[in-house]
Simulated assay, not measured.
Amino acid sequence: MFSIASLWIPFTIVAALGQVARNAMQRQLTGPLGTWGATNIRFLFGFPFSIVFFAVVIFASGDAVPTLGLVFWPWLLLGALSQILATGLMLAAMNDRSFVVTTAYLKTEAIQTAIFGFVFLGDHLTTLKVVAILIATVGVVVTALRPGAEKGFVSLKPTLLGLFAAAAFALSAVGFRGAIIVVPGVSFVTAASFTLVLALGVQTLVLTIYLLARAPQVLRGILRLWKPSMLAGFVGAFSSQFWFLAFALTAAANVRTLALVEVLFAQAVSYYSFKQPLSARELFGILLIVIGVAMLVAV
């Protein structure tokens, strides 16, 4: 029987699709803007759209603007600042070691999210859900690896950078969920939308101040490329809206594990758009992802 709680599944799938599109747009802007400039457009140009989304939600739901308690802000800052830190650690890991090896480490995020969610929020996961998370994570790692990539695992520095980046992404997911569920007196849609506005506001402020101090020319470049940045900002805010809706309804570990379908979307784009064949290893990894995700949704 249908329940509101089960909406986290389509919300997560929509968010993952939006993230694939946003990543493609940001990748095109990395050349002229640099990595941090391209990263900031998801915050700077996504922030106004999040306000529009929130206004529509308030109008449609009839909810009042929430009054937030002190407990909300530590969760929000944990989510917002951890996401920025995670991005920096990820870039450092990729600069130090191959993209493939770093990706393998980053995909431990789902497992770490399950641990942090249990420790900090008391999110309960059944044994079968834990098994599903492990299977899907192994599938992503198998899919990401390339012949000879295992040599990159012997170096301690990229290992630590990749694992800490995954931990920061996991803490970000837990922080956002923690913030959403303590918003009082409104629907889950309003709570998620309001949290997104404040999260993007904090991230825009922090990263813009950083760029003003360290690379003001990047901000000028962002303003010159406002048209493509606006579209990327909209898609980023759109996907974030659905991430936050999913976080409002279920444990962050469930969301981040189902989000691994993003790998399937990327493989499909690679196969159909660029006619790149899939190896037996990639097919095995995809099979594990499908099994893990299917178990997660079914149990």
Rank of each mutant, 00 (worst) to 15 (best):
A104P: 03
Y105D: 02
L106A: 09
L106P: 02
A110D: 09
Q112Y: 12
F118A: 15
L121K: 01
D123Y: 02
D123I: 04
V130L: 15
L134N: 06
T137Y: 08
T137V: 11
V138Q: 01
G139P: 07
V140Y: 01
V140S: 00
V141F: 02
V141R: 06
V142T: 00
V142S: 01
A144H: 03
L145H: 06
R146D: 00
G148Q: 05
A149T: 11
G152P: 09
V154P: 02
K157I: 14
L160A: 14
L161E: 05
G162T: 04
A165H: 01
A166D: 04
A168P: 03
A168S: 15
F169P: 02
F169W: 12
L171D: 05
S172Y: 03
A173R: 12
A173S: 15
F176Y: 15
A179H: 01
P184H: 08
V189T: 14
V189C: 10
T190Q: 07
T190L: 10
T190N: 07
A191K: 04
T195N: 08
T195M: 11
L196N: 13
V197Y: 10
G201D: 04
V202K: 07
T204S: 15
V206M: 06
V206C: 10
L207T: 14
T208R: 06
I209N: 05
A213R: 14
A213T: 00
P216L: 13
Q217T: 09
Q217A: 14
V218Q: 11
G221Q: 08
I222D: 06
L223H: 13
L223F: 15
R224H: 13
L225M: 13
W226M: 10
K227Y: 11
M230W: 10
L231C: 08
V235P: 05
G236K: 07
A237N: 05
W243A: 07
W243D: 07
